[in-house]
């Protein structure tokens, strides 16, 4: 059974990558299980997905503890311990990582025994461009060596059904490009050995002691902790207030904002707290003179970069 774990950030297309891989394996006649894992967070939060593929029915479930291939879409996740990128990585585990640094650097840095491959970071790549997922899926398909170019293409078309033709074409180009680039390494991922019982390490079960409710109830006692959570990272659209058209009504947008992320200064001008605005765009809908509009977050990032450069 092949056990593949994919790590990325919400929005980078890792769930789609896992589905592309899963469908491609299925296309080749494998039994497949694929699933994403995430919490309540959305864009930007570490997520992972996994794919199991075997020539027999798959009984195993849940987290892959000993992966044969680890795919990392975002190298900034490696030092994040909660992301668990190197968890269970063994001497034969192959690592595929999106990075400008050389494979040897990663091999040394993470003390890896298995092979390491890097996918170059394209200049147009940004954390929120899901094309990263396509190249990850294409490269992983080739490294496994069981998936034909046609099966990969078919899987991408079926997973992206309903998307615009140019989006599908772009994804295909990325995935097949990565697939072709890794041709010399086709089949370097080994199927994990079937596990018998053998000499297994007993789980270190313990008896939970009673503890006072002051300790054992899940309370947060300090106030205002939500301020520390930058939910603004979830935003895909950024509301912008045109102060020239704002009537200084002083209450509509700030009152309707469900996150309390708009405050009004002494002159009556509203200001958006972008650290906590989730981009729901309620303010855009309710502003009486239509003085608030929204732009995609990536455009805002471009504009900010241009401003800095200037």
């Amino acid at each position: 059974m092949y056990c593949i774990r994919l790590h990325g950030r919400g929005g980078q297309g890792m769930k789609t990558a896992s589905r592309i891989l899963g469908s491609a394996f299925f296309e080749e006649g494998f039994e497949v299980q694929d699933a994403p894992r995430y919490g309540a967070e959305r864009r930007g939060a570490p997520i992972f997905a996994y794919v199991r593929a075997a020539r027999r029915p798959i009984l195993e479930r849940g987290i892959i503890r000993r992966p044969d291939l680890v795919v990392v879409a975002d190298e900034t996740l490696v030092p994040v311990s909660a992301a668990g990128v190197v968890q269970g990585v063994g001497p034969y585990t192959v690592l595929l990582i999106h990075s400008a640094e050389a494979p040897a650097v990663w091999k040394r840095r993470l003390k890896l025994g298995g092979e390491v491959f890097t996918l170059p970071v394209a200049p147009e790549d940004r954390a929120d461009v899901p094309l990263i997922g396509a190249s990850c899926a294409g490269a992983a398909a080739r490294l496994v060596g069981e998936i034909s170019r046609d099966a990969l293409e078919e899987a991408i078309r079926s997973e992206l059904v309903g998307m615009r033709a140019e989006v599908v074409a772009e994804n295909l180009e990325r995935a097949l490009g990565a697939y072709d680039r890794l041709a010399p390494h086709a089949g370097c991922v080994r199927e994990g050995d079937a596990e018998g019982v053998g000499p297994f390490e007993s789980p270190d079960w313990i008896d939970l002691p009673f503890e006072d409710a002051r300790i054992s109830a899940p309370d947060i006692h300090a106030g205002g902790t939500s301020v520390q959570v930058r939910t603004g990272l979830w935003r895909t659209m950024r509301p912008l207030i045109d102060l020239e058209h704002c009537h200084r009504c002083a209450w509509v947008c700030s009152t309707f904002c469900p996150d309390g992320a708009i405050r009004v200064d002494d002159a009556g001008a509203p200001q958006i707290d972008y650290d906590h605005c989730k981009g729901c765009l309620v303010c855009v809908a309710v502003c009486p003179p239509h003085a608030i509009h929204a732009i995609p977050e990536e455009q805002a990032a471009d504009a900010a970069a241009a401003e800095n450069a200037a």
């Binding site: 589905r19 899963g22 299925f26 039994e31 497949v32 299980q33 694929d34 699933a35 994403p36 894992r37 798959i58 479930r61 849940g62």
Partner: peptide
């Protein structure tokens, strides 16, 4: 939830 709800199988 998760183990079946979000998990694809044949």
């Amino acid at each position: 939830g998760f183990y079946l709800s979000f998990t694809r199988e044949p």
